[in-house]
Amino acid sequence: MAIIEIKELTKKFNKLAAVDALNLQIKEGEIFGLLGPNGAGKTTTLLMLTTLIQSTSGTATINNYDIHTQPHNVRKSIGIVFQDPSSDEILTGYENLKLHGWLYDMPDIIREKRIKEVLDLVDLTNRQNDRVKKYSGGMRRRLELARGLMHHPKVLFLDEPTLGLDPQTRGTIWEYIQKLAREKNITIIITTHYMDEADKLCDRLAIIDQGKIVILGSPKKLKKNLGGDIVRLKSTKLNISKLKKLSYVKKISSCNDEICLTIENANKHLQELLNFVGKVDSVEIHSPTLDDVFLHYTGRKIRESAPEGSWADKAMHANIQGGTKR
């Protein structure tokens, strides 16, 4: 039984389709990743699913409630951590969480217990009574995350949950996300730019480009689909057309000043390949990562489209300006 069922979901801004007839089913308890270059339509999809914007056509059901006809019930079933900070900086961290508990009608005892729990998780317990204005960008991010996790929704949307966090915090947060999915059977939809994050967390993922799903599957399957290992070569005299004729070379692409080859069973064919190529300046071999998958299907490296105007940039900006917005 799918907890999220997306049918022909489309969003057009003027004539441009940001999300183009998306079809997708997500199972209960699954951690599902939405990957894609910036502007691929990930956030727009999330905003439609969370009832914050209307779709142009098509629909979706979450927890069996339709996002158009039963938005109130949809909102009861979901939680979301936005890409941009959405806490009130004049309030303290604790007050922001308490407010959230009230908005979600949590019983007092559970609310206080969960606040303790999530504050501890994101390591903000000693700063809970400071105003959010005094938090650093990373601390604000952690607070947002704590808030989204607090009411244990049926479906939790995380838009770039660990952007701008240090490795330790990312590790703890991954663990907690996994625990939520396993123990509480919470379905988690995550968008991310970190391929290692998607690889580690997601049961399944979809790569979206220009509003359409280009590939869908488990990280393992997607990596396997590439059909071999990646060999990076640096050499001054490579004969590409001859390389193409080798039966075990599946794909050739250029990465900066190097050549990337997708080789079937590289361990076996490496010596043969090196003999064939002749003198090389350097060689590197690795089994395919999600980065390679991403590159393969979108034709772009994710870093090329590094988030401009992303949450982290804005947070830094706000800090520089003193953040006195209200």
Binding site: T51, L52, H72, S86, L103, Y104, K325, R326
Partner: peptide
């Protein structure tokens, strides 16, 4: 301002009319 600092999103996505 609520719209600008996105606090509005937090409220609008809550199950409240």
């Amino acid at each position: 301002w609520d719209k600008k600092i996105d606090f509005m999103k937090e409220v609008l996505v809550a199950p409240m009319r």
